[in-house]
Amino acid sequence: MTILDMLNKMNENNKLMAKSLEIIKDNYTSLVNDNYELTLDENRELSVKIPSLERRNEYVYKSVAEYPYPLTMCMRISESSNVERYNYMLSKFMDLYRDKLDLLFKDVHIVDTLKAKIVKTKDRIDYVTYYSIATGAIGAVLLIIFNFTNNVKNAITIGIIVFFILALFMQITKESQVKKIVDAYISLIKTEWYQKELNKQYTYLCNFIE
Rank of each mutant, 00 (worst) to 15 (best):
L4V: 01
D5Y: 11
L7V: 06
N8P: 00
N8R: 15
K9D: 12
E12Y: 14
E12Q: 12
N13R: 12
M17E: 08
A18H: 07
A18T: 10
K19D: 05
S20N: 01
S20P: 02
E22F: 02
I24W: 02
T29N: 14
T29C: 08
T29D: 13
N33Y: 10
D34K: 15
N35E: 15
L38C: 07
L38Q: 08
L40V: 09
N43W: 06
L46V: 11
S47P: 07
V48L: 07
K49D: 00
I50L: 14
P51F: 04
L53D: 14
R56T: 09
Y59I: 00
V60C: 11
Y61H: 13
E66L: 15
Y69G: 02
P70D: 03
M73R: 03
C74N: 13
S81H: 10
N82R: 06
V83T: 15
M89P: 08
K92S: 13
M94T: 02
L96V: 03
L96E: 09
Y97W: 07
R98W: 03
R98C: 01
D99K: 10
L101E: 02
D102I: 01
F105N: 05
H109F: 08
L114R: 08
A116K: 15
K117Q: 12
I118E: 05
K120M: 05
K120E: 12
T121S: 13
R124F: 10
V128I: 15
Y130H: 11
Y131V: 09
I133A: 09
T135Y: 07
T135Q: 03
T135G: 02
I138N: 08
G139L: 03
A140Q: 11
V141P: 00
L143C: 03
L143D: 04
L143V: 01
L143K: 07
I144E: 12
I144A: 14
F146T: 04
N147W: 04
V152E: 08
V152R: 09
I156D: 09
T157A: 13
I158D: 08
V162G: 01
F163A: 05
F163V: 00
A167Q: 08
Q171A: 00
Q171P: 03
E175V: 04
V178L: 07
K179C: 07
K180S: 13
I181T: 11
V182Y: 04
D183C: 01
A184G: 04
Y185S: 10
Y185M: 09
I186G: 06
L188G: 00
K190T: 03
K190L: 07
Y194K: 03
K196M: 02
K196N: 10
E197Q: 11
N199K: 14
K200M: 09
Q201Y: 02
Y202F: 11
Y204R: 13
L205S: 05
I209Q: 13
I209F: 02
